[in-house]
């Protein structure tokens, strides 16, 4: 039996968010897929963050007066930009989904299969 620990909590959260995200991404409507992408983003961000290993009460803010331990700042910087970029991505995907829904009046993500249209100009 794995002992309960902060590491276990974080790892299980990553696992659940990933699983939930993937399940929703495999749905056939745009909205659940967007939700799934968001959940997966959380999972991935926490995963990246956790590669710096976990520390409590050790923010990477330099202390001029005492020699203290700091957590790894690099994954934090990576994840910070990832959060902002994922907002941009979500916004674009939402916009595309909305535009597609308004134009086609249906929010299925699979494209209807068109019969071959041969583009031979002659």
């Amino acid at each position: 039996m794995i002992p309960l620990s902060i590491e276990f909590l974080v790892a299980s959260a990553v696992g659940l968010l990933t699983a939930a995200g993937i399940y929703l991404i495999l749905r056939r409507r745009t909205f659940p897929v967007i939700l799934g992408l968001s959940l997966l983003t959380y999972g991935v961000n926490i995963f990246l963050f956790a590669t710096g290993r976990l520390m409590v009460n050790a923010p990477p803010i330099l202390n001029k007066y005492a020699d203290v331990a700091y957590t790894d700042p690099l994954p934090q910087a990576l994840v910070l930009t990832a959060i902002v970029i994922s907002f941009g991505m979500t916004a674009v995907v939402v916009m595309i989904a909305l535009a597609a829904y308004l134009s086609a009046r249906d929010d299925l993500i699979d494209m209807p299969h068109h019969p071959e249209d041969e583009g031979e100009d002659a």
């Binding site: 990553v14 696992g15 659940l16 968010l17 990933t18 699983a19 939930a20 999972g43 995963f47």
Partner: peptide
């Protein structure tokens, strides 16, 4: 999910 969790753990 299990894979991701195990890996990060």
């Amino acid at each position: 999910g299990l894979g991701a969790a195990t890996l990060i753990y």
